[in-house]
Design a protein around this nucleic acid. Structure first.
Length: 347
DNA sequence: AAGGCGGGGGA
DNA sequence: TCCCCAGCCTT
């Protein structure tokens, strides 16, 4: 038996034993001593929620999901609309659609038991290289190279990689591979990400308290904060649009389900125009006395939106698009944030 | 290989 | 304001 464990990994695990942060999906040290293993369903759910999303933003959503759907089979049996509503506000809604797809594959093809290898996990909807590595390491204790934004930053600094991302990604992966031990795999995966999230932060890294400070090339060179370098991104254009919020006398509101593909896919939204850079207009979805409620500003991944909001009360007649949702079945919290902002303008 | 896809918090 | 984030999927 000759297990590999670099000195760096050993030092990091020592640091993690002391500084590991509490998270709802983590098994604490005491429970771990009692042989409690992480629930693969919990690990998978948390990792999908954590894609491009901070721990702070995820916590409440995670608790809400596991309370409402305690096992992956429960989630698999959920209504699509209920899952999309529960995800509302978390963003990147394709994740919620793939989450449901994945739960149904696991329930129906794997008997409700998650596969335990990187290769099998990678084939599931919504699971890419990062998530497959994270779940196989954290939930199943397998050696896997987790490479997310945190690890990329830590590697770029520790080895002082000056080539910019994303071209340097494979270099960073190879460096991360070289440090990854083949025991305590789950702890190491979480430790190196915790290091990036709490010590080796993007703006002003706390090099003075870093467990890897003595050998970090960027700290020694004094340019840690400037790494990793990134190729510049294009500026975001401004798009314009109109949204119509119609309310009936009985309180029902006019909403439409957006197509699965594209922006805010699968979510509810107010009828309205397309969003584009050139000014334009659109006929109201239903005949009514429309009043201008002003403008909502919202920024998406690749553009800024200025959305004119028009509101009508006591609407009669049949809409040409969308359908009226009874007030008791409508909760503003079920809407994506830009749609909720428009609703707030009409209150 | 490149672009689409949310939202919130920090500097 | 800009940047970042426990990325994935499609083209």
């Amino acid at each position: 038996m000759c297990e590999k464990m670099t000195q760096q990994a050993a030092d990091l695990l020592d640091w993690y034993d002391i500084h590991a942060r509490e998270m709802p999906w983590r098994v604490g040290p005491a429970a771990r001593q009692d042989g409690v293993r992480p629930d693969p369903y919990h690990i998978w759910l948390s990792e999908v929620m954590l894609q491009q999303t901070t721990v702070a933003a995820v916590k409440d959503y995670f608790v809400k999901f596991v309370t409402r759907w305690p096992a992956v089979s429960d989630l698999a049996n959920a209504e699509d609309g209920d899952v999309m509503a529960a995800w509302a506000g978390l963003g990147y809604y394709a994740r919620a659609r793939n989450l449901l797809k994945c739960a149904r594959v696991v329930a129906q093809e794997y008997g409700g038991v998650f596969p335990d290898t990187y290769e099998a996990l990678l084939k599931l909807p919504g699971i890419g290289p990062y998530t497959a590595a994270a779940v196989s390491a954290i939930a199943f204790g397998r050696r896997a190279v987790v490479l997310d934004g945190n690890v990329e930053r830590v590697m770029a600094r520790y080895y002082r990689v000056l080539d910019p991302l994303p071209a340097s990604k494979e270099t960073l992966r190879a460096l991360a591979d070289g440090l990854t031990p083949d025991r305590r795999c789950g702890d190491y995966a979480q430790a190196v990400m915790d290091l990036g999230a709490t010590i080796c932060t993007p703006r002003s890294p706390a090099c003075g308290i870093c467990p890897w400070m003595t050998d970090c090339a960027a700290r020694l060179a004094g340019d840690a904060a400037s790494l990793p370098r990134k190729t510049p991104k294009a500026a975001k254009p401004i798009r314009l649009g109109v949204a119509y919020v119609a309310e009936r006398a009985d309180g029902a509101v006019l909403l439409e389900r957006r197509p699965d593909k594209g922006l805010l896919g699968g979510m509810l939204g107010w009828p309205g125009s397309v969003w584009q850079e050139m000014p334009h207009d659109m006929d109201p979805p239903v005949d009514a006395d429309w009043q201008d409620r002003g403008e909502v500003r919202h920024t998406f991944t690749h553009f800024h939106l200025r959305l004119q909001v028009r509101f009508a009360q006591d609407v009669r007649g049949t809409p040409e698009v969308g359908s009226f949702l009874p007030r008791e079945r409508f909760s503003p919290a079920d809407l994506p944030t830009v749609m909720r902002k428009a609703w707030d303008l009409c209150r």
